Simulated scan of single mutants.
Amino acid sequence: MIPIDPTSGAADTSPQVAPARMDAFRADRVYLGADHARNERRTWIVTAICAATLAAQLIGGLAFKSMALTAAGLHMAAHVAVLLVAAFAYRVARQRKDDPRYAFGTGKIGFLAGFANAVVLAATAFLIALESIERLIEPAAVDYDSALPLAAAGLAVTIVCVWLLKPARAAHDGDADLNLSAAHLHLSADALVGVLTLAGLAAGRSFGWSWTDPAAGLVGAALVAQFAWSLLRRTGGVLLDMNPSPALVAEIRARLQAQGERVVDLHLWRLGPGHHAAIVVLEAAQPQDVQAYRARLAGLAGLSHLTIEVRRA
Results as ranks from 00 to 15, higher is better:
Asn117Ser: 09
Asn117Gly: 09
Asn117Glu: 05
Ala118Gly: 14
Ala118Lys: 11
Ala118Thr: 10
Val119Ile: 15
Val120Phe: 14
Leu121Pro: 06
Ala122Ile: 08
Ala123Phe: 13
Ala123His: 04
Thr124Met: 14
Ala125Trp: 09
Ala125Glu: 05
Ala125Ile: 07
Phe126Gly: 09
Phe126Leu: 14
Leu127Gln: 13
Leu127Ile: 15
Leu127Arg: 11
Ile128Ser: 03
Ala129Ser: 11
Ala129Met: 11
Leu130Asp: 13
Glu131His: 14
Ser132Phe: 04
Ser132Thr: 06
Glu134Ser: 12
Glu134Leu: 12
Arg135Met: 13
Leu136Met: 11
Leu136Glu: 05
Ile137Val: 15
Ala141Phe: 11
Ala141Ser: 13
Val142Cys: 01
Tyr144Ser: 03
Asp145Pro: 05
Asp145Gln: 13
Ser146Ala: 15
Ser146Lys: 12
Ala147Ile: 02
Leu148Asp: 01
Leu148Arg: 01
Leu150Lys: 02
Ala151Ile: 02
Ala152Glu: 01
Ala152Gln: 03
Ala153Val: 13
Ala153Glu: 00
Ile159His: 00
Val160Trp: 04
Cys161Lys: 00
Val162Trp: 08
Trp163Lys: 04
Leu165His: 05
Leu165Lys: 05
Lys166Cys: 10
Pro167Leu: 06
Ala168Arg: 07
Arg169Leu: 06
Arg169Trp: 05
Arg169Cys: 09
Ala170Met: 08
His172Glu: 11
